[in-house]
Design a binder for these strands. Structure first.
Lengths: 228, 228
DNA sequence: GTCTATAACGGGATAGAC
DNA sequence: GTCTATCCCGTTATAGAC
């Protein structure tokens, strides 16, 4: 059946793109694992690149809808006061992390692909990301500005940047904590992953701002280090 | 001359691997940009994969030496008390960030490659990382355990994980803050990047620990925050 | 050490029968 | 919608002259 073939291709492509990257995955590898014909790929999706985009939006579309819905809810409930950083982060980070931790296994590998979405520097990835994340990005950015109004905008932007990195890395490697703990430790309870990540980032957002001139001692320190 | 050709290949390979990834970069692309012969690559480095490793260790070897030296110094100075989180983070994050911000331009693109080092899930990348980062990883992990002795080890490991993500992403995209700030804002002063990143992560390390039983009730936690 | 030439293979895409 | 067959190009790697 048609939809069956299409689904199969999407599923396998998602798996292989996540595992080997876009350039590292050949259509022939995909069709072999999916047990379909090469021409079918070009029939249903017209090119390798379009296939990638289809793989991505299949999951990010509902994901981003959920994020925006949660943000709406949080902002509605906050009413007169602004929503807290934790609530905003929860609306942003909860959906993708629940997706990858979902025991059904549906979205498990997608996290790795999404992590790549953020670390691929070249190609279509960036355009795709821009295309599908722009609205979400703007809404959440605005919400954060309201949540920490005293934070200079430069600092806010850097902290968002750091937060994205922590999130992307977690989505990619939530199952590989052993690497970081030099092989001695287990992955840890996935149940607590969301509050752990939210707590870490929220604390980062509330960190004291590095004063323009107060960086002096750090800089001086670095300069001293450099002289060694 | 021999060393000239070799250097040229290393330089161009670093650039292209960083930009397009390993699988996305062909040797022919490299030799074209480098203006050398294809056979030269196989003569000086015996394969594409070995070339990648050569590119990586050329910069990571001195980098990791510097990290360890800084850590030694910090721990020596701390003597009876443990080194602070900030000092440890500075020893770990300072060297690579100074490298990418170095106005000489020597190591600018290497950050992007190093960022990939942490987000490539497949191939030789992992082996290479393991091979060259294991000692560093263990030393810093131990130092952090001493710096935050009250933090449960599970939490510590997750936070290290988040920190690596923030670092890797920053190394890759320190020059692309606009993406995160929906295109409206400039990159921000690179001079302050190190204290900003260190401050963010250090605050994350000092965040309150998520209590075992309190995790299920995010709503309650969020409600408490709202009352602030 | 550096070149040319070529081996040996895998890649994405398409035409056209069914 | 699905298949086979094929085009045409790019890939890594090597052999052997200079």
């Amino acid at each position: 059946m048609s939809t069956d073939t299409k689904q199969k291709i999407l599923d396998v492509a998602e798996q292989l793109f996540a595992e080997h990257g876009f350039a590292g995955t050949s259509l022939r590898h995909i069709i072999t694992d999916a047990g379909v014909n090469l021409a079918a790929v070009h029939y249903h999706f017209r090119s390798k690149e379009s296939l990638l985009e289809a793989v991505i939006i299949r999951r990010t579309a509902p994901l981003n809808e959920e994020r925006l819905a949660l943000l709406d809810k949080v902002e509605r409930e906050a009413e007169r006061s602004a929503a807290s950083v934790e609530e905003i982060l929860l609306a942003f980070l909860g959906p993708p992390i629940r997706l990858i931790l979902n025991p059904s296994g549906e979205g498990r590998i997608f996290g790795k692909l999404m992590g790549r979405l953020h670390s691929e520097t070249n190609l279509c990835f960036l355009e795709i990301a821009k295309k599908h994340f722009d609205v979400v990005s703007q809404r959440f950015h605005a919400a954060l500005v309201r949540a920490v109004p005293d934070l200079p905008v430069d600092d806010l932007n850097w902290r968002v940047h750091f937060a994205i990195g922590a999130m992307a890395h977690t989505l990619s490697f939530w199952d590989r904590l052993e690497v970081v703990s030099h092989g001695k430790l287990k992955t840890g309870d996935p149940e607590t992953l969301i509050p752990r990540l939210v707590g870490f980032i929220a604390a980062g957002f509330r960190a004291p701002v590095v004063a323009r001139q107060a960086t002096g001692h750090l800089k001086k320190k670095a300069a001293v280090e450099r002289r060694r």
